[in-house]
Amino acid sequence: MNSATKLRSTSMVGNILGNLTSEDTAQTIASVENPIADNFFVELPIAEIWRPKQQRLFFDPQEIEKLKIAIQEEGFRGAVLVTSLPPNSEALSQGFKYELVFGASRVTACEELDHEVIRAEIQELTPQQVRRIRFDENMVRKNLNAFEVLLGYLELMADEAETTPDVVEQELNQMSNSAKRGNGISEDIKTRLETYQAILDRYNGGKLTSFRTKLIKFRSLPDDVRQALDTGQIDASKALEIGGVKDDEDRDDLLSWIIDVNPPVKEIRQAKRQQAESKNTAKEKKPSPNMKRATTAVDGLSLLLKGDVLRKKNKQVGTILDQINDLVAQLQELT
């Protein structure tokens, strides 16, 4: 079927642009995945669908394999959602006509099965609407890890305020600094902060102060831990638990163990304590410079005791030994 086939619009966008609830979003996604007679879909060439960078940083290969098996055994059910690319899109020059809104795993599975077309619904959407729908779809499926969810919130806040994620973070920092110092903030920023909080409320995402704190913690994760989180090797709670381990070798040991064994957070904390205790014990056993000096002195006297110097009467030797005894007594007074 020609990609320009005329379609009758569904009620999807109306749901998405209102005050969303989880139930609304679930029904929206279900309407595309389980089409009813009132909805019309087309078979689009996969080569015409542009897939932008997704909010999901990692796609589980096992998930793709399960989808492929399901498609082979039961056929392709439901549809993916696409929107026409705007006239100024660079993707048009690469031969694409549509942007994928959601259904990336299904498109990948069909590609790997050498399917040339896929069932799709076309909606005319703004970039802000696309990001909202994509985020809601991932939230309903619980496809995002905790850091991806935070970044999704940040994008929605920027869209709502018609600004950039960087500006949103700057305003959140101003909010935090104002609370600490007792300084005021402008009415414009107050209004935008209320907008940001409303977005978190929509998804039961907690308070702005907590959101900012979590975002900072995730952004400060070491590269190795962040990579393990992004690729789905560890979950967010475990990433945060070992993210504060400063010693690279200790952190690498913990990370390898977590990836292999997947222990509960309680056991990870216990392992961190054992690492710290082991280091403290090692520090206690390591001789200080003064201990080394004392050892040298004792070793020297031991050698003298074995020789003939101390056996002979020698006034000068006696004077030096008296001085040594006096010094030892002074050291004992310091303890």
Rank of each mutant, 00 (worst) to 15 (best):
A198I: 08
I258C: 07
L208R: 02
P222Y: 12
V225F: 06
I199N: 15
D235S: 11
I259D: 12
S210K: 03
D201T: 15
K246V: 14
G205T: 05
I199G: 07
K214N: 03
L255N: 02
F211V: 01
I234P: 13
K207E: 04
I258P: 05
G205Y: 05
G232I: 06
S256N: 10
G244M: 13
K207G: 02
D201A: 15
A198E: 15
A236S: 10
I242F: 03
Q233T: 04
P222V: 04
V225D: 02
Q227S: 07
Q197K: 14
D224L: 02
S220L: 09
I216C: 02
T209V: 00
L254Y: 01
G244C: 07
A228C: 05
D247L: 05
I242M: 09
K207F: 01
Q227A: 10
P222N: 13
D230M: 11
R226Q: 13
E249I: 15
L200K: 01
K246L: 10
D223C: 01
Y203D: 03
L229I: 04
L254Q: 03
G243C: 11
L255W: 06
V225L: 06
D224T: 00
L240P: 11
T231E: 12
A236V: 10
K207H: 01
G232H: 07
D230Y: 04
I242H: 05
D230R: 06
Q233V: 02
R219H: 04
D248A: 13
E241N: 12
S237V: 12
D224F: 01
S210M: 01
R226F: 07
R251T: 12
